[in-house]
């Protein structure tokens, strides 16, 4: 069954433009000019129940606008949306009981209250009986080790602790879909890992559908099996993570430590990324040359140590962004 169905969804924002300086501001009062920007342009996609989907793209690509239309925050300009069979902008409240949202850049918690009081408040918002809220708080307390700060006002918590509390608050009603908009922004690696492990567990144990936007490749690589890339309001790629890697991993990085200095020039299919003292870093285009060609070029007898790796996912994604921009 589909958790999310989107058909030809568009969102256009109208904004006022003005010429530079005070003169421009005065002119804009009498002769205002407007420009329309299509933040999302006729995108269509589906998400299966229980899926973990990465919805990524560069800044201003239309990710947050899409997530806000899916959660009922924004009204679409045109197109159809169905989230768990509900139209978000027609039945926003009904949908809110079934979804959870975490916006990494915006806090939903009351900062003068403790996480415990906040969780109770969110429990009341979702009309959950107190006993059940208590049980769930206890459960999350164990998972996230909330003991040391559950009774400290939110304003006194670190960014990581706050984000964990945001996630717990958004899960207090056990939603079917969790929308995460850059949940790990600004967090240290330990907290990031904790959040990723938890999201995976949540998906596995409770079959929660996860809709994730993130600029952190680690989040995408470790959590998602499918990825949708958007740019300039269009979907430019909708594929499994496996396929993404397979199709775009046609380049390998060869790093070699030599016992003597050798002089190399770029050849068709092999480019030199770094040449410093006895260390060399080459990029091999597998459609033109093989790894053994690269090793032969280096002269195997002079190699002390060698490391062959894939192009990092971050580079792949950034190349897709650039290609689609051009």
């Amino acid at each position: 069954m589909k958790a999310i169905e989107v058909k030809k969804l568009s969102k256009t924002f109208k904004s006022k433009t003005k010429e530079k300086g005070l003169k421009g501001s005065i002119k804009a009062i009498f002769k205002p000019k407007y420009q329309e920007k299509k933040a999302v342009n006729k995108i269509s996609f589906e998400v299966e129940k229980g899926e973990i989907l990465a919805f990524i793209g560069p800044n201003g690509a239309g990710k947050s606008t899409t997530i806000k239309m899916l959660t009922g925050i924004l009204f679409p300009t045109s197109g159809e949306i169905s989230v768990l069979g509900i139209n978000p902008h027609k039945e926003r409240k009904k949908l809110a009981y079934k979804i959870g949202t975490v916006f990494g850049q915006k806090e939903q918690l009351w900062i003068h209250l403790t996480p415990y009081d906040n969780f109770k408040f969110f429990g009341a918002i979702y009309d959950i009986p107190e006993k059940i809220v208590e049980r769930r708080i206890e459960e999350y307390k164990q998972i996230f080790e909330l003991d040391e700060f559950i009774n400290t006002p939110v304003r006194g918590l670190s960014l990581g602790q706050r984000m964990i509390c945001e996630i717990v608050a958004s899960l207090i009603h056990e939603p079917d879909i969790l929308f995460l908009d850059e949940p790990t922004i600004g967090l240290d690696p330990v907290i990031k890992e904790k959040i990723r492990v938890f999201i995976k567990r949540l998906n596995k144990e409770k079959k929660t559908t996860i809709f994730l936007t993130s600029h952190d490749v680690g989040d995408i690589e470790k959590l998602c099996k499918r990825v949708i890339i958007v740019n300039n309001g269009h979907i430019v790629l909708d594929d499994s993570m496996e396929n993404l890697k397979y199709h775009y991993l046609n380049k390998k990085i060869v790093e070699a430590k030599m016992n003597t200095k050798i002089n190399l020039d770029d050849v068709d299919g092999i480019s030199i990324l770094k040449d410093k003292d006895y260390n060399l870093k080459l990029e091999v285009d597998l459609t033109k040359k093989s790894i053994s060609d690269a090793i032969k070029l280096l002269d195997p007898d002079k190699i002390i140590d060698i490391n062959i790796s894939n192009t990092p996912l971050e580079t792949i994604i950034s190349n897709i962004y650039k290609e689609t921009k051009e």
Partner: peptide
């Protein structure tokens, strides 16, 4: 400032 987001994701008026 877009601060209505937090209120719009809640199942209340």
């Amino acid at each position: 400032e877009g601060k209505l987001d937090a209120y719009l994701t809640m199942p209340k008026n």
